[in-house]
Design a protein around this nucleic acid. Structure first.
Lengths: 334, 334
DNA sequence: CTGAAAGCGCTAACAC
DNA sequence: GTGTTAGCGCTTTCAG
């Protein structure tokens, strides 16, 4: 059932049917009604490919992220998908993997071929070494064909928009809290090297410096493998004299909590722990963990609004910030 | 830059270019190389819409689920996306919402218009009252145009495939464990009414019956609102004489754990708790919870394999089962 | 307000 | 091996 069939059945030309489909004001209400009836009777829907060919768009947006199974990204995808669907867009999702930046490039190249109308990149992973890193040139390249939106990231370039959580100051704030509780030997626990991580580390340094505390490289603790991995690694080689842990994500923080339990260290009396992301596992554990909310939804929303502005011919800000919020729970003292 | 441009630049006809694009054996290696070079120099990629129009497919598969922000579905989407990408398919994702079955219908209708090559439905939500529920007719309707695959679900019909976790027997097994530990007043804690839930409830009844324990309607405890909600509701009105809780998902189980902590009930000494889904929060809490692994990945994989078989002209089984696995941890006694 | 006809860029049957 | 050409189903001038 195509536009010709409908035209024939309705006794009009295909041009008229097309106009009805697109709700053009150039058609009389009468013929509109007639054509609509025929379309419904045959439950006709226009062929999206043909439509795409003619129009050059199928109203889809591309979402690329390292891994949807990650709760943070899943939340972002869910929100973006929902919002953009309300504006009539479908979403093509592509997970690019968490390791190799080259895979990111391949993913972007691939999804661009789908002639999407906009591209969302989720996670600071795509930011690499900073806003001007030449390794992100593929993003600038992509931006030549569609607007690109970074959720918790920004890359300088024409037609590129991004929103960032100020991880640096949020971390500084979190570490300040620990310091204000009298903590002096604060472990920085992390498991990746992303832009976001570097910002957190810097915030950690900032807080220490402001308090006149020494920066001790041995307090930067790297551990892969999630909850179990962190627990295991800490049991193996955590410096014994620490009195607090700032973890770059909640999974690590829970691992730290389990380490403390197993090592017979009481939390928060002997050891304070702060996590990051304010995810469900931060409230599943016991004691519940203080955690920094990295404002995933807010970042998504900023980008979505930028896209909406763009569609209306307005020019949105290229780069926006939001503050992380420290959500305080039992595992810090005060 | 289209096929005509490339043809001109390479000094061949568009047919030849098309053949090169599709790696047809009918072209000499020499001209193939020449055309390829021109394509690369201009980094030409064929227009997917035109291709779709001619071929009737753009090699995309549709994934519909109630909510990707849910960890279970996120895992499923991640796996399906990854596997099918390896086979050259892109994925369109659409979240249909968790409440209204009509939204599911709308989502399916919408995504079908995209001329997808297959449809995945994630979650037993879509199964409604059973395999033959007329309210799932829209799925049978969809199956007339593309094969439909249900992850943890099945609907009887031509061209419909599904894989289910045997939630009934897994639950029975879990409740049996509780009974074998001497528990007699076992609360059944739940928050939805899906096919899967009904199976769990039945498994719960089975275990009680087999052990000669009475079925007490007051032990069926409904609670919305996740961890906090469950804790709150239990504090308010949990029967005082229970000695175990079987929770239909880990979130509820953790809520139960928090309830016990707050009510001063020791786990597992006075109260055993078993969760469902074997998710990360079941190992974030303390004590870690025994939980049933509902085999999300396995169910996805079965469906993916069915699709692959179908593409090769084989006829896969319409309905498959997998067993849930009881993962035992500290919160049960033995 | 409506219709005729020229694309949109590609595939595939058919010639050579 | 390669080229010609007729669609695929829709949008959009351009006429009327």
């Amino acid at each position: 059932m195509n536009i010709y069939d409908i035209a024939k059945l309705a006794g009009v030309s295909i041009a008229t049917v097309s106009r009805v489909v697109n709700d053009s004001p150039l058609v009389s209400e009468k013929t509109k009604a007639k054509v609509r009836r025929v379309m419904e009777e045959n439950n006709y829907t226009p062929n999206v490919f043909a439509r795409g060919l003619g129009l050059g768009t199928m109203k889809t947006i591309g979402i690329v992220c390292p891994d949807v199974a990650d709760v943070y990204m899943a939340r972002a995808v869910a929100l973006i998908e929902k919002s953009l669907r309300e504006s009539g867009y479908d979403c093509i999702l592509q997970c690019s993997g968490k390791k190799d930046p080259d895979d990111a490039r391949a993913a972007v190249t691939n999804i661009l071929n789908k002639k999407i109308d906009a591209l969302f990149l989720i996670g600071s992973f795509y930011m690499l070494e900073g806003e001007d890193d030449p390794d992100t040139d593929y993003i600038r390249e992509a931006a030549k064909s569609v607007p690109v939106f970074l959720v918790n990231g920004y890359v300088r370039g024409e037609n590129i928009y991004g929103a960032l959580c100020d991880d640096r100051s949020a971390t500084e704030q979190a570490v300040n809290l620990l310091i204000s509780e009298g903590r002096k030997r604060i472990l920085f626990l992390y498991n990746t090297d992303s832009h976001s991580l570097r910002e957190k580390r810097q915030g950690y340094f900032d807080a220490l410096a402001a308090a006149g505390l020494p920066i001790d490289e041995s307090l930067l603790f790297f551990s892969l493998g999630g909850i179990e991995g962190a627990k295991h690694d800490l049991l193996l080689s955590c410096p014994k004299d620490i009195d607090a842990i700032f973890a770059a994500n909640d999974r690590l923080a829970v691992g730290a909590l389990k380490y403390a339990r197993e090592a017979g260290i009481s939390v928060p009396d002997e050891l304070s722990i702060i996590g990051y992301d304010n995810s469900e596992i931060a409230v599943s554990c016991d004691p519940e963990l203080t955690s920094v909310d990295s404002m995933c939804e807010t970042l998504c929303r900023i980008n979505i609004n930028s896209l909406r502005s763009l569609l209306q011919g307005e020019v949105p800000a290229a780069k926006s910030y939001t503050k992380g919020i420290l959500v305080r729970r039992a595992s810090t003292l005060l």
